[in-house]
Design a binder for these strands. Structure first.
Length: 281
DNA sequence: CGGCAAACCTGCGAGC
DNA sequence: TGCTCGCAGGTTTGCC
């Protein structure tokens, strides 16, 4: 389920149940997800106290009291479920089970197993390969028009593809790339290098606004995603373009019924992009 | 180095 | 009903 807003939704829920708590029991129910679990994964975690539940891009960063940090990525279909009281029977694809000292159960379920977990020394976190090259957090002060413009300079790929590159900006995925480009009025096919100056400023504002609104809505529930409480996210109802090919554009008078455009779906680097050719240039 | 397709894996809906 | 195909929110790999 995971782009930044969905991961942030999960982070908040996990923080609430885990921060300050000790892990009484941890169990992996298979040897690997996308990668094998590191040696002694469950054993090392058992007995640890969770100090913090953070996020970097789409990665959950869980700080523990004994100098270790748990890194968790949801991949495409990863989900956390939290049960404060008696949990139901284990379900298919429940791959990792955590239990806290005060009786909460947390389960990681991931049908496609593109997600993964890793356990690293907190001191070595800054050198973790997948985090080293990551670009700025889009909701932080480190991200602004000039920073984005500089990251896009010299890039020949379309802007949509550049936004999916986590070294340009962290946490953007296929949905919010399309949605932000729509808000900014920028064509997904535009060469990334030409997004400079006021266009870059506009795109930064568009990214920020769409992410903030999506977080407030608990993320988007298309198929897999639910909040860890079991509640659905509901930002999918606010999509302007994603998954709406053939429908009228909410921002202009485009309407496929009248033969003047509307939302179109195209494929870019093997992934769907949705946009309005009239409003986005 | 940059850009793109393919690979990883399972499930679901559409179409025949 | 049952099969096949295409598609799905991510990231890495390997090939031009």
């Amino acid at each position: 389920m995971p782009e930044l807003p969905e991961v942030e939704t999960v982070r908040k829920a996990l923080a609430e149940v885990l921060e300050g708590r000790r892990l009484a029991h941890v169990e992996t129910r298979r040897a690997d997800l996308r990668f094998p679990f590191p040696r002694g994964f469950a054993k090392k975690l058992t007995g640890c106290r969770v100090e913090s539940v953070g996020r970097r891009g789409k990665f959950l960063i869980i700080g523990l009291d004994d100098g270790l940090t748990l890194i968790s990525h949801l991949g495409m279909s990863g989900r956390y479920r939290i049960y404060l009281k008696t949990p139901p029977k284990l379900e298919k694809h429940d791959h990792v089970v955590f239990e806290t000292e005060n009786g909460a159960s947390i389960r990681f379920n991931d049908p496609r197993r593109f997600g993964f977990m890793d356990l690293v020394k907190t001191a070595a976190l800054a050198t973790y390969p997948m985090l080293v090259k990551m670009g700025p957090e889009p909701l932080s002060n480190a991200f602004n028009g000039p920073v984005l413009a500089a990251a896009l300079k010299g890039r020949k790929a379309p802007i949509k593809a550049a936004l999916l590159d986590q070294s340009v900006v962290a946490g953007i995925g296929n949905i919010y790339a399309s949605e932000a480009l729509f808000r900014a009025g920028i064509s997904p096919k535009r060469k990334a290098a030409t997004v400079q100056g006021s266009r870059a400023e506009k795109l930064v504002l568009a990214l920020r606004s769409v992410l903030i609104e999506a977080i407030a809505a608990g993320g988007s529930s298309l198929r897999d995603h639910r909040q860890p409480s079991g509640e659905l996210g509901y930002f999918q109802h606010a999509f302007a373009v994603y998954g709406r090919d053939g429908q009228p554009c909410p921002g202009c008078t485009c309407n496929p019924e009248t033969g003047v455009g509307g939302i179109r779906r195209i494929t870019q680097s093997g992934r769907s992009t949705f946009y309005c050719a009239r409003r986005q240039r």
